[in-house]
Design a protein around this nucleic acid. Structure first.
Lengths: 204, 204
DNA sequence: GTTTAGTTTAACCAATTGGTTAAATACTTA
DNA sequence: TAAGTATTTAACCAATTGGTTAAACTAAAC
């Protein structure tokens, strides 16, 4: 039997495009079919419903992001290098996937259930029962390498600082004339400023 | 003539409720009418279209937020007090308006044009040609009161740290077992941790 | 070559939804 | 009270859209 994986792939890329651009609600099955160059009924033939097609796309896009991030920093033990690598990689990964952030926020806004489930799956697949960066921060504190901050708050601060310019991009670029959030120049500045602020804030 | 402002008010509150809960796209005119206890045709009679009703609601909700924030910090000159007040008020205002953040993000995701326009209007109404906190940070740097960081990046960091737990709330509460983003305890911790990190990071 | 199973298509359907309309109902004013 | 204006309603409409279906097509298996 000839299980046609080619059509399935065409559907998945077209769906990823459309879902990323429009979000689940505003995405149209007809548009996905058109971009994939196939009949709309095939979407249902391969994926049954819009919801399931969306789930599949969501899983692939988000897993890819987190796996890249985990891969990039998992072996770093030194706290200063770890924080630097986290910031650099987080910003680069987001910069390459601007629409993914919106996409994830859309999903979170519906309650976040799918996102939470997916994160648990990803962690399971990697054999993790704790959050590595949290543990490493706590270890650095115990060893007296950094000031005794709350590790969870530090992580929230890190991510918030990295992600905010992308979330608020149109506002940022308009209020702060001259800033182009995606420019190499801004990205480099952002990485440096975040790291300096954090490191000065927690070093002993 | 009796311009019926009562119906108009009922519509505006019902619309604010529904738009905040569902977002513009998923909000239904019928539901707004039902919650206002009026006939659906009245929505169009008073506001012409869904788009215009949305615009009006958006303007009121967002203006209210920013005016509260500006009012709370505009007279503070001392940089340390200003940063503290910014963090405290920003977090409190968001905590009281959880859905507003989603709402604003939804709007930004469509390009951010309305948001940018509104911010300009608000600044005009307050007679501002510059961003007060940016100017005050720059002044503090010139006077040698804090380290020479980039004022814009510092503002981005501030907002990002304040806002992120609310944006990612379902994930945060699930990954970090025990955290309740809206609890007084967490809010207080968050304010302290952000301020300490920032202040240690920029103080001389 | 015929059967069988998987694949693809055009046409169709039912539900939803923003918006309209004509008629009915209040108010105001002269 | 009568006329004129503003307000409110029920019924309706056209467009959109996720999903279905029956029939046609393709290709391997026997």
């Amino acid at each position: 039997m000839n299980y046609n994986t080619e059509t399935e792939q065409k559907i998945l890329s077209a769906a990823a495009e459309v879902f990323l651009e429009k979000g689940k609600g505003a995405a149209r099955m007809q548009e996905i079919a058109d971009r994939a160059g196939i009949n709309k009924a095939l979407l249902h033939y391969y994926f049954r419903s819009k919801e399931r097609l969306y789930d599949e796309v969501f899983k692939r896009l988000v897993s890819d992001f987190f796996n890249e991030l985990f891969d990039a920093i998992q072996d770093i033990e030194d706290i200063q290098l770890l924080l630097k690598a986290f910031i650099d990689n987080y910003i680069d990964l987001i910069a390459q996937r601007q629409r993914l952030i919106r996409f994830i926020i859309w999903e979170i806004e519906t309650g976040g259930g799918k996102m939470v489930e997916l994160l648990k799956t990803i962690m399971q697949e990697r054999g993790l029962t704790t959050i590595p960066i949290e543990v490493k921060i706590q270890k650095a504190i115990q060893e007296g390498k950094i000031a005794p901050v709350d590790s969870r708050h530090l992580i929230l601060s890190l991510i918030g600082m990295c992600i905010y310019p992308f979330i608020a991009r149109p506002i940022v670029e308009n209020i702060f004339q001259g800033i182009q959030v995606t420019s190499t120049e801004f990205l480099q500045q952002r990485k440096t400023e975040i790291f300096n602020l954090i490191w000065n804030g927690i070093k002993k």
